[in-house]
């Protein structure tokens, strides 16, 4: 999937996260993570984000995560929502979302 516009998903409430995605002018995939639990879970959050992007075939874009202690399931859902909001004519492929 190709990110063609900026999009947001999620909230800054506790146990949630805000995901902002934007097209990348350089064609790179940049993932920026800010989290209240960065020290304990930063690596796990990044792993979940990158896996989710990979399953959606997202290979370029700027992905900014503001995490408020969300579970992995919320991270997956918010990243997917932001990406689907940022692409042209999104089609839900459930096998890629599981």
């Amino acid at each position: 999937m190709k990110i063609v516009k900026e999009a947001l998903a999620g909230t800054l409430e506790s146990s949630d996260l805000m995901v902002r995605v934007a097209p990348s002018p350089e064609g790179a995939l940049d993932v920026v993570i800010n989290s209240e639990v960065m020290r304990q879970f930063g690596a796990q959050i990044e792993k979940v984000v990158r896996e989710t992007l990979e399953r959606l075939s997202v290979t370029e874009g700027l992905i900014v995560i503001e995490d408020k202690g969300a579970l992995d399931c919320a991270i997956r859902a918010r990243v997917q929502t932001a990406i689907l909001r940022a692409v042209e004519n999104p089609v839900l492929e459930w096998s890629a979302l599981s």
Binding site: A9, R76, R78, L84, L97
Partner: peptide, 14 residues
């Protein structure tokens, strides 16, 4: 609606 559907989709699998 789109965000809630995906949140519920993943929460159900917890």
């Amino acid at each position: 609606k789109d965000a809630a559907r995906l949140l519920v989709f993943h929460a159900l699998q917890l």
